[in-house]
Amino acid sequence: MSSPLLGEFLRSRGVTRRDFLQFCTTTAALMGLSPALLPRVAAALEQARRPSVIWLPFQECTGCTESITRAHGSTLESLIFQGISLDYQHTLQAAAGEAAERARETAMQENWGRYLLIVDGSIPTGNKGFSTVAGRDNLSLLQHVAGGAAAIVALGSCAAFGGIPGANPNPTGAVAVSAVVKDKPIINVSGCPPIPVVITGVLTQYLTFGKLPELDALGRPRSFYGQTIHDRCYRRPFYERGQFADSFDDEGARQGWCLYKLGCRGPTTHNACATVKWNDGTSFPIEAGHGCIGCAEPGFWDKGGFYQPLSTGQWGSARTLGMAVGVGTALGVASAALARKRQKDAEDA
């Protein structure tokens, strides 16, 4: 497949210079870049070659793909997405079977060492038959394709952390990309699913600067995952004042008070929902009245009930506490008795 420059491609699709700059501005702002860098971003994007991208879906629900393709019908993000030379994506591409696999092999050969690999879904490490593509098991396919990749984007919480397939009891032995591929740079774009602009933003960043963005300890781009939902949540003032909704239909909930007590994971979840929002910036879960369930964090499915407050500690039961009281009392009484006895012995001595 040919790979003209991105700028040309966009213009051929009728994108005006103005819209393009607007996109650059938004993306740069999202990435936390200074406005001074804007011309550079724009120039770099225009000149960028449409990179070859191979997308491998493994144990996934297609939510991530839905997120990026459906949510933003005709926006620039989706155009950018189209702008990349998506050489293999078996959910989206027309070709199937042998033809599709051949296309992948061709793209790999032509761009060996330079293509970007996007993975969504987790990789089963149990029975090889759990998940296969064209008769090939996920693990070996990943290892094969990763071999020629410049970098890997683990898209969505499944690819990034194991996600729902990896949740307890994890019947397929599902793991994250990073558990299997050790010798390639991996960008985790977590979320279940991730926010579309976050995906395109990361791609943009990669295209613009030709290098990986700065990552946090969990391999996520700091520019999008540097703050918690709670840090930027518009309900935060209620939290500070201790005004909490106690149920989903009480007065507090109607007043839009903080959802902490209803299990909101905002304080421990790093994602951009509170600022970027969903559905073209329409809203995000907390705005819709439901707490964050922490989908962008590892193991979010296994952290207790979604409606248990975050501060939950397992304090044990009143019975265990009662036992502690009993033991403490017994020891206290015994040590006092012992001391009295020593006293008596000393007196007799």
Binding site: G316, L321, A324, G328, T329, A336
Partner: peptide, 20 residues
């Protein structure tokens, strides 16, 4: 830790308060 705290506090307090 809560258990140890409760045990320890009672042990130490009663250990002296029950002296003659």
């Amino acid at each position: 830790s809560l258990g140890i705290f409760v045990v320890g506090v009672l042990w130490r307090l009663l250990g002296v308060l029950l002296l003659r």
